[in-house]
Design a protein around this nucleic acid. Structure first.
Length: 296
DNA sequence: GGGATTTGACCACG
DNA sequence: CGTGGTCAAATCCC
């Protein structure tokens, strides 16, 4: 039973808002710590901003949609194979029938920072079993890029692949780009059962894990971060293909003695300094990395 | 011996 | 034609 586009958008809206809420809790928790990580706060605030931006964008687009009685716009960008009734408006730009070979798979990337001491070549075990099928020196990059595909490609026809590249600026950061969704019946981590310690391993390895989802047709991208502490990433972001970014960690929320004012201050500061017209999709240009936007 | 990795060649795309 | 992604033979490792 195929859900309607409308319900998909609503679902997406809920996901995004849930995301914002989760990140907000994490931000609060972090601020209540003895030494709040500025980087973490910045990252969380940025993610919240993105999430809310997207939520507003969805809402406004839906509103416009209803006003104009236009066919629904779906914000669940992937799944290009789904035969959407209605003309795709993005087809105006004459793409010369992009050969069906590449570019058809959804793509998103993580930035994984491993703990500085552990300079392992395997940045982050994401729970899937990968098989390396290539390595390439990339122009301008200090380190080669590794190409991996799902081990079950032959057995189950799983087309998921990923690329891993070490950041040349910071060798402890790996840029992991996922492509395609896992169709394999996959057992999460053949190792130890999903014990708490094992999950703590994930945390220690992913000090700062960013997930960037990229649609194929538009440049719009959403970015979310996974902080090292109190990782409680609940949403599936886009359950079309986000399975392997699903980290379920015991929600060890800190004591909630955070002063609401501190938190609100940061948020208000952020929104006031980045008062962009939210609907525009170019919010990636917003200078969220200016520390002045976040300094208390 | 079987599966994973390495590595140069090949190919598609811009 | 250069670059990035994939193939596949050779090699490695258990």
């Amino acid at each position: 039973m195929e859900p309607s586009r409308d319900s998909l958008d609503h679902k997406r809206l809920i996901e995004v808002l849930t995301m914002a809420q989760v990140q907000t809790m994490q931000l609060k928790a972090n601020l209540s710590e003895h030494q709040p990580s500025f980087e973490l706060c910045k990252s969380l605030a940025q993610n919240i901003h993105f999430a809310l931006n997207e939520a507003i964008s969805i809402s406004m687009a839906k509103l416009k949609e209803q006003e104009n009685h236009l066919p629904p716009v779906c914000f669940n960008s992937p799944s290009p194979d789904s035969p959407v009734t209605g003309s795709p408006p993005s087809e105006s730009s004459e793409r010369k029938e992009m050969s069906k070979k590449r570019k058809t798979l959804p793509k998103w990337s993580n930035q994984v920072r491993v703990s500085p001491g552990a300079m392992m070549d395997t940045p982050l075990d994401d729970g899937y079993s990968w098989r390396k099928y290539g390595q390439k020196d990339i122009l301008g990059a200090k380190y080669p890029r590794g190409y991996y595909r799902c081990t079950h490609r032959n057995a189950q026809g799983c087309l998921a692949t990923k690329q891993v590249q070490r950041s040349d600026s910071d060798p402890s950061i790996f840029d992991v780009t996922y492509r395609g969704e896992h169709t394999c019946i996959h057992k999460l981590k053949p190792k130890a059962s999903a014990s708490q310690e094992n999950q703590q391993d994930y945390l220690s390895l992913s000090n700062n894990l960013k997930v960037k989802i990229e649609g194929q047709d538009h440049e719009q991208a959403s970015t979310f971060s996974f902080p090292s502490s109190q990782l409680t990433y609940l949403s599936t972001l886009d359950n079309h293909f986000m399975d392997n970014n699903y980290f379920s960690v015991s929600p060890c929320v800190n004591n909630q003695q955070t002063t609401e004012s501190d938190f609100n201050e940061i948020i208000s500061t952020m929104t006031s300094t980045t008062n962009s017209p939210v609907v525009d999709m170019d919010f990636m240009d917003i200078n969220l990395f200016d520390p002045n936007n976040f300094l208390p």
